Computed example of a mutant assay.
Amino acid sequence: MSRSRRKTPIFGHTTHESERDDKKRWHQRWRARERATLASAAPEALADHVTLLLNEAGNVWSMSKDGKTWWPPGSQVLTAERIARELGRTPRERAALKKRLLRRWMTK
């Protein structure tokens, strides 16, 4: 996977890498409410049971990531150059930093 590249540079608005913990909590809440509903239902009513709607267990807007945005490669290069200018001391160090940033942003 060291050579895998992102086909489209779309990134989430977040400081979190993934929504794994949010999805895990959401599924726990959803399953707990389903179990409670099934436990309290009469045996005759189980055939008529309708599962909970997705939004009844949680809100997608309260998760860590809040939307996505397109980050064009040209803007990525400009941002990498600006960061390298600020942090790099020598031309060689600036070039290595720019290259490292671009590789990190474009990998999966």
Rank of each mutant, 00 (worst) to 15 (best):
K65A: 04
S75V: 01
T69W: 00
G67L: 09
T79P: 02
G58Q: 09
V60L: 04
P73Y: 01
H49Y: 15
L78W: 03
W61L: 09
S64I: 05
A57S: 10
A39C: 03
A47S: 15
A80W: 00
K65S: 09
A42V: 11
V50Y: 11
A42L: 13
T37Q: 08
Q76S: 04
T51A: 15
S75W: 00
A80V: 00
M63I: 08
N55Y: 12
S40P: 02
A80Q: 02
L38I: 03
A39T: 03
H49F: 15
L46W: 15
V50P: 02
M63Q: 06
N55G: 13
A80Y: 01
P73C: 01
T79C: 05
W71N: 01
A57K: 00
L52W: 13
A42R: 13
W71G: 00
E44Q: 13
V60M: 07
L53I: 12
W61D: 10
W61E: 10
P43G: 12
A47P: 10
P72E: 04
E56M: 10
V77G: 03
S62K: 11
P43H: 13
G74T: 06
M63W: 06
A42S: 14
T79E: 02
L46E: 14
S64T: 08
T79S: 03
V77H: 07
E44R: 14
T37W: 06
A45G: 14
W71R: 04
S64V: 02
A42C: 12
T69V: 07
A42H: 12
A45T: 13
W71C: 02
D66M: 08
L78R: 02
S62L: 10
D48P: 10
T37A: 09
M63Y: 02
W70M: 07
D66L: 06
L78M: 11
A42F: 10
L38F: 08
G58D: 09
K65E: 03
T37F: 08
Q76T: 02
L78T: 01
